[in-house]
Nucleic acid binder design. Structure first.
Length: 275
DNA sequence: ACGATAGCCTGATAGC
DNA sequence: TGCTATCAGGCTATCG
């Protein structure tokens, strides 16, 4: 499940492989992946454009293209990119192929078919869906502990749901939400507005810490995630609670529990994490 | 306005 | 080559 650390790793690895390449042709075999603009326009605009940079916003990849265009790509659960020689066979579940003019291709594969692509002018990106509603980047200087605490004060939902809310902070998903709350010693079902300033600060700091460590490890390969070079991440070896239910907590020894919070599978230690 | 939830989708797995 | 139900979850639409 690509969250911020995985998307950031894809961004870094893919940049090495496709920067400055020029698109010759686009092949879309699953039209629903392309949300905007109309498929015909998507296929007509891209040829001739070169990739000038790859940026990231939350869990979105932003392919910056010549001519002032940006391709916004979300991997959702199992989307991934790879670069291949055009002569190589196309594997199953490949839905979009960007053919370059140098005999190579950027291929988008997505078993669950949940990923999305939007193409728009770069100057419109910040003011239109899916980017316009995103909250602060976790590593932005203006995202402070105080800003986070005040945001939590306005939320009646539980802290797990608040961390998953991309408008509160962009990029946290189910794996890292559980890990952040474990390290912060906060139970996932605690109402966000009820948290003390001290606890909010702990969650804030652990959010940055966990995400930074995960980026350093190349992300977490829990199910199918691989980076732009087809390599797995290593951070799954450093998880404390995610999918550790039934195993003893490495801190206190009590069995890690799994329940459902905010509609998501949620893993936590009922002794270490206080309500 | 906000919170909660269904639906999208395929493959792995558990249970019978 | 056993079959079926359940689960995995980020985001959007929809409902209350």
């Amino acid at each position: 499940m690509p969250e911020l650390p995985e998307v950031e790793t894809v961004r870094q690895t893919l940049t090495q492989l496709v920067l400055n390449k020029t698109i010759k042709e686009v092949k879309v075999s699953l039209p629903r992946i392309v949300r905007s603009p109309l498929l015909e326009d998507f296929e007509n605009i891209l040829p001739g454009k070169s990739i000038t940079a790859i940026d990231r916003r939350g869990k979105f990849l932003l392919f910056r293209l010549s001519g002032g265009w940006t391709l916004i790509s979300h991997l959702r659960m199992e989307g991934n990119y790879g670069v291949f020689a055009s002569s190589e066979p196309v594997v199953k579940h490949t839905h979009v192929i960007f053919v370059f003019d140098d005999g190579t291709e950027l291929r988008y594969r997505d078993v669950r078919q949940f990923g999305t692509m939007d193409l728009m002018k770069t100057d419109e990106v910040d003011n239109r869906p899916p980017i316009n509603k995103l909250g602060p980047e976790p590593f932005a200087e203006d995202w402070t502990s105080d800003v986070f605490y005040k945001k939590l004060k306005s939320k009646k939902k539980n802290i797990k749901a608040a961390l998953l809310d991309q408008e509160v902070v962009a990029g946290v998903g189910n794996i890292y939400a559980d890990e952040i709350l474990f390290r912060s010693k906060v139970a996932p079902m605690v109402v966000a507005a009820d948290l003390s300033k001290q606890k909010a600060k702990s969650i804030y700091e652990n959010t940055k810490q966990v995400l930074a460590e995960a980026i350093e490890a190349g992300g977490s390969s829990v199910k199918s995630y691989v980076n732009g070079q087809g390599k797995m991440g290593m951070f799954q070896q450093q998880l404390f609670v995610y999918q550790k239910h039934g195993q003893p907590c490495t801190v206190c020894g009590r069995e890690i529990l799994k329940t459902r919070v905010a509609g998501r599978g949620t893993h936590y230690c009922s002794k270490c994490q206080k309500s």
